[in-house]
Design a protein around this nucleic acid. Structure first.
Length: 109
DNA sequence: CGATTGACGTACG
DNA sequence: TCGTACGCCAATC
């Protein structure tokens, strides 16, 4: 696979439990800040990747589970996040700013 | 090979 | 404050 996707997957895998990140943050970290959609596409391809990519920890910049519909069942993403300690209310991550995990800061390029 | 879409984000009305 | 429009890159039709 292209390193581009691997990088995305790696970043997502580095997201600590109980934390979430955004497509834009990943895109920016990869240097493709304007290509936030690419990150979404990468997530689409994430299915079947090994090791599995915790895509449920990736939300849009508003903290909304925009891609929950791609997890097989819409409620699944919310459940997984809740199980990891992330409060999710109506498809939106509560206290998003606090649980937000920025690769540009944490990974400190 | 051209047109459309997509798990986004920002700008503008 | 909410809704609509546009840009961006890649994959799929």
């Amino acid at each position: 696979m292209n390193d581009f996707y691997e990088m995305i997957y790696e970043v997502v895998r580095h997201v600590p439990k109980g934390r979430v990140t955004s497509y834009g943050a990943i895109a920016k970290y990869l240097g493709s800040a304007q290509s936030s959609r690419l990150v979404g596409w990468a997530m689409n391809q994430a299915h079947g990747r090994k090791p599995p990519v915790p895509a449920h920890r990736v939300v849009n910049r508003l903290g909304i589970l925009s891609g929950k519909h791609h997890f097989g069942h819409p409620k699944l993403m919310e459940q997984m996040l809740a199980k990891e300690g992330v409060k999710v209310k109506k498809d939106t991550v509560q206290n998003f700013k606090k649980v937000f995990w920025d690769p540009a800061i944490e990974l400190k390029l």
